[in-house]
């Protein structure tokens, strides 16, 4: 089942060169006595890409999404959607939002949910009926359309949650953790639908904890840490950049407290991160750096269980830049 999208202002010549989403120097401070949730953060999401926001819990992902959806106002900085700084009704209509938890009415049927949110998006009559049928097909829940949602499986709820965000054919789709805690079939279906949406020209911004998902789906990612963008860029470029640079060593015991400082002082080693018994580092010349690392480990009485270098993954990049495990 392919996904067709209606042309919109975003796709017209006037707006063709504008980024779909442009966040400039955003700061969001909830209280003066705690660090800001977002700290001078900037990202640019070009039109027609799938853009992943990655980051540990508390990194500020939800705050960023709330600002993009117009639910929160930034303390400083600007947000532009398709070149518009103000979230006017026309701009809001370009936006589809898929919250993390299924935002649906459990005692209504799937069809009634779609009908209600469709009407709220301004659809009526035959157009609404067409879109409801299309969404039921996209989600592959047509056989369950007239059952109450409370009787749906978790995967079916997620699929309905997704297509409610598509009912009005948005040009920008924002998804918060769209595949958390669902069965592999539903996850695969959602991935497939997102690729189809991308092929139809929809710009997709999603947050996820699944690094493999981001690697498979996203063209660009931003890894956030403590309200800032730690690293941003094209996924392939990031992987390529870190492919030859990365070294990963599993230690055979807990490291002594002075080890990290000793490792960071090595001239042949770039970024070093020591998390538990997991040591990750980058280096322009991995072989030379590996020898230096092993020597320093030996001097501190720490042995090696396994060693790997030159194999890049978003998981490892995430670890390097945030110092935390990707999964909560």
């Amino acid at each position: 089942m392919g996904i067709a999208c209606a042309p919109s202002a975003l796709g017209t010549a006037a707006g063709a060169d504008l980024p779909a989403i442009e966040v400039r120097n955003i700061t969001k401070r909830f209280r003066d006595d705690v660090p800001p949730a977002l700290d001078d953060l900037s990202i640019v999401v070009p039109q027609g890409v799938i853009y992943g926001i990655l980051g540990p819990n508390g990194a500020g992902k939800t705050t960023l999404l709330s600002i993009l959806c117009g639910l929160l106002k930034p303390t400083a900085g600007t947000v532009r959607l398709a070149g518009h700084e103000t979230l006017s009704p026309e701009v809001k209509r370009m936006l589809g939002v898929v919250p993390q938890e299924p935002a649906i009415y459990p005692t209504l049927t799937g069809r009634e949910n779609l009908e209600y949110f469709g009407r709220m998006q301004g659809l009526r009559g035959s157009r609404l009926a067409e879109r409801i049928e299309a969404c039921l097909q996209i989600a592959e829940i047509g056989d369950q359309a007239d059952r109450r949602v409370e009787h749906y499986s978790g995967g079916y709820k997620r699929r309905l949650n997704l297509v409610i965000g598509l009912i009005h054919e948005p040009r920008i789709l924002i998804l918060d953790e769209p595949t958390v805690a669902i069965d592999p079939h539903s996850r695969s279906l959602i991935h497939q639908r997102l690729r189809e949406l991308h092929a139809a020209g929809v710009t997709i911004l999603l947050t996820t904890h699944y690094m493999e998902e981001a690697e498979q789906l996203c063209h660009q990612v931003a890894i956030m840490s403590r309200g800032r963008v730690a690293v941003e860029g094209d996924v392939h470029a990031l992987l390529a950049r870190h492919r030859d640079d990365s070294i990963q060593i599993s230690l055979d015991r807990d490291p002594p407290s002075n080890l990290a400082q000793a490792l960071q002082g090595l001239p042949s080693v770039g970024d070093v991160n020591l998390s538990g018994r997991c040591l990750t580092a980058t280096a322009p010349h991995p072989l030379e750096a590996t020898l230096a690392l092993l020597q320093t480990l030996g001097e501190h009485g720490v042995g090696v269980e396994s060693l790997d270098y030159g194999h890049a993954s978003l998981e490892r990049i995430f670890l390097i830049y945030t110092g935390e495990d990707a999964r909560p």
């Binding site: 959806c69 117009g70 639910l71 009704p89 809001k92 209509r93 936006l95 939002v97 919250p99 993390q100 938890e101 299924p102 935002a103 649906i104 009415y105 459990p106 949110f117 709220m120 998006q121 301004g122 409610i164």
Partner: peptide
């Protein structure tokens, strides 16, 4: 309940 279910959040992102 609507707020907890997220549907109110969804409505707030629309032009309602």
């Amino acid at each position: 309940k609507e707020r907890d279910q997220g549907s109110l959040f969804r409505l707030q992102t629309m032009t309602v």
